[in-house]
Amino acid sequence: MSADPAQNGAPMIEVRALTKRYGRQVAVQEVSFTVGPGEVVGLLGPNGAGKSTILRILACYLTASSGTVRVAGRDVFLEADAVRRLIGYMPENNPLYPDLRVREYLRFRARLKGLRGAAVRARVNAVLEQCGLTEVAGKIIGTLSKGYRQRVGLADALVHEPRLILLDEPTIGLDPHQLRAVRDMIRSLARERTILISSHILPEIEATCGRVLIMFAGRILAADTAANLRQRLSAGGEVVLEVAAPPAELQTCWETHPDVARFECAPADDGYVRCVLTPRGETDLRPGLFALAVERGWRLRELTRRQQTLEEIFLRLTRPDAEAEE
């Protein structure tokens, strides 16, 4: 890839105020985000959130209603051809030509994407290797299993060494074993390329992406690293405490504690009691509880704050009444 003055300092993807309407229905509304070079970003949201629409606009397949989209500093509308050369795109459901053999298909795609002569053979062999397709290279695509087809789609997206890889639901319908293989492959790619993955399944994004954009109903609700998001949203999380203390004392203590909103206590083995405390407000209860145990002379064997999984954050954010509740 030759150096291009247009890309100097430009983010890999720049989306500003992007809106896409289908008739009166709004698919994407005022979405803005940027993706820097080398980032792996997940686009997370339920079906119909507008993830595929954004990817299609980025791949120059669809046109938006308004807004600006640039890839490596190039406008996707005015310089569609140049942008397409930069992108490896695997559409939703991974459509392939079932009548071709794997190698034929990849050769065709490589040529179509501008590779020539010996480079075609070299790159096709490389992606076959990379995606673990070497042993099925001579098979007809129509006869392949779902997992292999998914890998063929991935190989197609990679064959011309694109700077930006767009994957729309790359792991849909895979069994856990295949899932891990695809995930590993994406991780291995992450070192040298910019990747944007859309998914409605959280662990996939969590496992591979450095940053997550959470979409719902055409909007981006949250954008941060997976860890930060969890951090931000887990503030004020429940605390689990296991102490050896008289249950009655515990009961009155929690009832009178100013920071505890709710509590639940249940006897555990060896005379310990397991309490789950919900804080009032955003405070972290743990330091106070530790001091309390020391002061009262309770034997403390566990004091943890429950980490929210992204799943829970996602559910919280994407529940239609989430905002009202907050």
């Binding site: 791949a59 120059c60 397949y61 051809d81 397409r84 992108i87 559409p91 459509p95 795609r109 994407k113």
Partner: peptide, 14 residues
């Protein structure tokens, strides 16, 4: 109908 149109049209071809 099969969706391959999208793959085709997102390749750098006019």
């Amino acid at each position: 109908a099969t969706g391959t149109f999208e793959t085709l049209m997102t390749a750098p071809v006019g």
